[in-house]
Write a protein that binds this DNA or RNA. Structure first.
Lengths: 339, 339
DNA sequence: CTGAAAGCGCTTACAG
DNA sequence: CTGAAAGCGCTTACAG
């Protein structure tokens, strides 16, 4: 209670109080085994009595490390991202790291700024879920960063780093195949930003599925737009005005699908009867939606866990080869495309 | 390109290169206006040439501050929390702070651990969304922390700190009133943890509404359970087995409501006809749900913004009086309780 | 407007 | 097993 409001107790004061050297006190704090039990107890006692709190900033300063990992994501309000973040966070915390969080809201300039900030804070490592339209400048900035880093969810050409994501092409292929097998011939692809690898990989799967079935892709049924509810709503309204509207919609992600479903309801189009819809990501809402959404599961939490583990390895073993982890997606058939 | 992989360039090296003292270089880096234009340019040139990166860890060490704010939340996968976090994050970032994030998953021990970690990292301030069952130990730990702090969303008795949240009692009152006005006499209250202020405040509103209308509360229609989809599902299944099942359900939050709706569908009970449902929080999914959910809007993003601003004031003006900001909720009537 | 010296609170070699 | 000295890379007073 005599603890004054002014300053923290320092390790030096602890050492003085315990009658040992600062070095010894430091070794005790860090649980170094070469300290005798007696000394350890003395020091721990003093720590308790004085109410000492370890100063990681000072420790990190000297040891030229930090227990901090920078994590930069595009948007926490997307469940895919928040699930990813949970995977990253819980894994890193279990490994003894703390997360310095940055959110870009898909803005390149915010991303640039956050990257600088994180470096200035001397993070031990970096996990980056890049924005859709990452520039060349971003790429060169990233390559300059001499800190272990892992890219996730969106791949950037020419960046020297580990990567974890899922196989979007196969996911799209499975989804569109499913729709084709149900007899659909006019399938729309709505949402997503063309400049992003997550879009180009999906469109590849979209085309492959059409090719295999000997079907033509109608470019007027492909609309790229922000991948959220609003974008989905806008896109479906546009596509419904087409002379030959689609009979099925493959959505960039579940959020887009929700917007699409909303738009269909507004136009009196009956889901699962007049039109089928498939999403992507399998966010928790997709299962409980009414009707439950057919979607492609992309395991964001697993991606987060793997990204954190990859980074951990990289932080402890700089020289190992760059890794590229691509998870297999899974088609989950629910009501929006049944029978 | 001659930048070696070994060490960061230091301010001292910059100063040497520019032919000025380290102090001067330091002042330039911090944009101190009392440096002449000529000197400033020389230093900035050297910074560019050498590829100098500011070391905030060292700066913070010496200046005894950090530009870091610790933010501890219960669970990012709840949209209410992620929206809150977005408000906090974007506000703090705009003010020049970076967020050190911790997630408790509603576990007291995790919360204790995270609090310690944040203090050790010498955060400038702390925003805490406490776990449901925060212990006395937590309270005393919090009171010991001599760092500006703001509590959010859940109030803790006897903690000396600012608080931002919404008026849960009034919110519950409005929701239940609405149901009573529709003629309901047997209203269930499902979800939430009894030990939490967020529960007790809601139940108070629940009772007040009944009292005003001269209605009796049936305790068997009140089930406390984890406030998520799974909890909602379990609770409604239990309550449907009641000899006199309720004709309306007031849910602890929207997540619980989604679980409830799922359970109703499983039992062939028709929403809006056999039974009415009201949620709480107005998370984005509630509007796009089918049918759209009647709910109480609790403006999580605004809470986050206000919490960040309160903390900012506190960090810059330690002596001002403790504040308690209670936002007014708003009833949003949608399909699950229409006509 | 600029500089020399000391210090933030630890850890790191090194010595014994 | 323990200690004395130096140093991590900045900023802070102070002097001029």
């Amino acid at each position: 209670m005599k603890q004054s409001k002014k300053q923290r107790v320092t390790l030096q004061e602890v050492a003085l109080h315990a009658g040992v050297s600062t070095s010894t006190a430091s070794l005790v704090v860090r649980n170094n085994p070469r300290i005798s039990e007696a000394t350890r107890k003395k020091v721990l006692n003093s720590i308790n009595e004085l109410g000492y709190v370890y100063d990681r900033v000072a420790a990190n300063m000297r040891s030229r490390s930090s227990d901090i990992v920078g994590v930069i994501v595009t948007d926490i309000s997307n469940s895919f991202i928040s699930e990813f973040l949970i995977g990253v966070q819980s894994t890193l915390e279990a490994l003894g790291y703390t997360v310095l969080l940055g959110t870009t809201f898909d803005s390149v300039s915010k991303q640039d700024h956050l990257l600088s900030t994180m470096i200035e804070h001397r993070v031990d490592g970096l996990i980056l879920n890049p924005v859709s339209k990452s520039s060349e400048k971003t790429v060169s900035q990233l390559n300059k960063i001499e800190i272990p880093k892992v890219l996730a969810n969106r791949e950037l050409a020419n960046v020297n780093s580990d990567y974890v994501g899922i196989d979007y092409t196969t996911g799209a292929l499975m989804a569109v195949n499913h729709l084709i097998e149900k007899g659909h011939k006019r399938i729309a692809f709505l949402g997503g930003i063309k400049q992003s690898s997550t879009w180009t990989e999906r469109i590849r799967g979209f085309h492959i599925a059409h090719d295999i079935a000997g079907l033509k892709v109608d470019e007027s049924l492909i609309i790229d737009i922000e991948p959220n509810r609003k974008g989905g709503l806008e896109a479906i309204l546009k596509v419904l005005e087409n002379d030959h509207p689609p009979t099925a919609v493959f959505c960039f992600n579940d959020l887009v699908a929700f917007g699409v479903i909303k738009g269909l309801a507004m136009n009196g189009v009956i889901l699962g009867q007049d039109i089928d819809v498939v999403g992507f990501d399998n966010i928790p809402e997709s299962e409980l939606y009414h009707p439950p959404l057919t979607t492609v599961s992309s395991f964001p939490r697993s991606i987060g866990i793997k990204a954190a583990n990859l980074l951990y390895n990289r932080m402890n073993n700089e020289s190992s080869e760059l890794q590229r982890l691509i998870l297999k997606p899974e088609l989950i058939i629910r009501e929006t495309s049944k029978k």
